[in-house]
Amino acid sequence: MYLQSLYIENFRNYSQQKVEFNAPKTILMGNNAQGKSNLLEAVELLGTLNSHRKARDRDLIQSGASIAHICGKLEREISTDTLKLTLRRQGHRTVNLNGENLRRQMDFLGVLNAVQFSSVDLDLVRGSPDVRRCWLDTLLVQLEPVYAYILKQYNQTLRQRNAHLKVCQKSESPSGLEELAIWNNQLITYGTRVIRRRERAIQRLAPIAAHWHSNISNSTEYLQISYDSHIPLEYNSPEIIRKSFLDKLQQRSVAEVSQGTTLVGPHRDEVKLSINQIPAQQYSSQGQQRTLVLALKLAELQLIEEVVGEPPLLLLDDVLAELDLLRQNQLLDTIQDHFQTLITTTHLGAFDAQWLHSSQILHVYYGKVISE
């Protein structure tokens, strides 16, 4: 797939900007705080409807404006699609595909696939379990767009169940516990779907990431990735998982009512990362962490291409500054012209002459994009 053009209006620090992409690799160069990352964020939103910055819609809209637009024209092997996302300061966002407003945002997902890689991604190793769950969920939305709906339903049920637990915490009424059983059933239904899909994704991703990690580390280290759930997953059978889920909820019911929160479910699960069977979060060096994250991102690219049938876009946000020369070369050599790549940088020193010759270079200055 190839993003031909991007148009943004009242988005972040851009009042109005159109960018035409005319090379497989586009280098966005400029000083910090000029708007380079904002352009990548706009593309990310067209692909996943989410920003890795965790920004609210009203924070994405330019000050003084009530509405913002992000539009992209995408060339795929079987079609050319026009995508439009409209953000509103007051009210819901809307999505439009090929001139038609879509009733379900889920139908917008999976048209443009993109992998984002920034310095923030180093938190995949050293950050909290929530960071790794979010990374896995974002990948799953690209592999299986319906997962966005499943995860949304689970999170809504979780919030409602937590609210009910707080009511039970203040009251010993039997009716409260009876109603809790209803929430249990819904939590188990959606939670089982989340758990099984996460487990399957990790099973597919793990060997690919291990292969890349071995290449980058010259076969001196072995990467292991596993999905660590509170619910036993030995058979990955929905019936067995549902029963185990219910057993765990019943076992923790007293503690849950006492604390007023749900203690069992995929929102408490972990993605375990180990190097030579040692937990990476605790013992890996900074260099090992960078190698691990680079391997994960390269594995994401490969897995999405295998599932979707086309190479996704790669969005590199000032990431070369975080990698040493060896890892920079590994990443740049892998990209070549296979993946359309948008890369931000403050200088061109990390790129060799061949890379620069085959790249489109755009200068970003205070919310304006200028061709070289």
Results as ranks from 00 to 15, higher is better:
233 L>W: 09
137 D>A: 11
14 Y>Q: 05
245 F>V: 01
52 H>P: 00
261 T>A: 04
189 T>Q: 13
23 A>L: 02
29 M>G: 02
77 E>W: 06
164 H>P: 00
342 L>Q: 05
188 I>C: 02
73 K>C: 11
176 G>K: 06
179 E>S: 06
94 T>P: 01
242 R>Y: 04
350 A>S: 14
268 R>L: 10
59 D>C: 03
5 S>W: 00
38 N>S: 15
130 D>E: 14
108 F>K: 07
322 E>F: 07
61 I>A: 11
21 F>C: 00
327 R>V: 01
168 C>K: 13
44 E>P: 01
235 Y>M: 04
266 P>A: 12
353 A>I: 07
317 D>N: 09
86 T>Q: 14
325 L>G: 01
99 G>T: 04
339 F>Q: 11
207 P>N: 07
35 G>C: 09
75 E>Y: 00
151 L>Q: 13
296 L>W: 13
10 N>Y: 09
195 I>K: 03
315 L>Y: 08
95 V>Q: 11
92 H>C: 02
357 H>K: 15
125 V>S: 08
235 Y>C: 02
111 V>E: 04
161 R>W: 12
292 L>G: 05
281 Q>R: 15
283 Y>C: 10
93 R>I: 02
182 I>N: 03
160 Q>L: 14
58 R>D: 14
191 G>E: 05
207 P>E: 08
30 G>K: 11
295 A>M: 10
194 V>D: 03
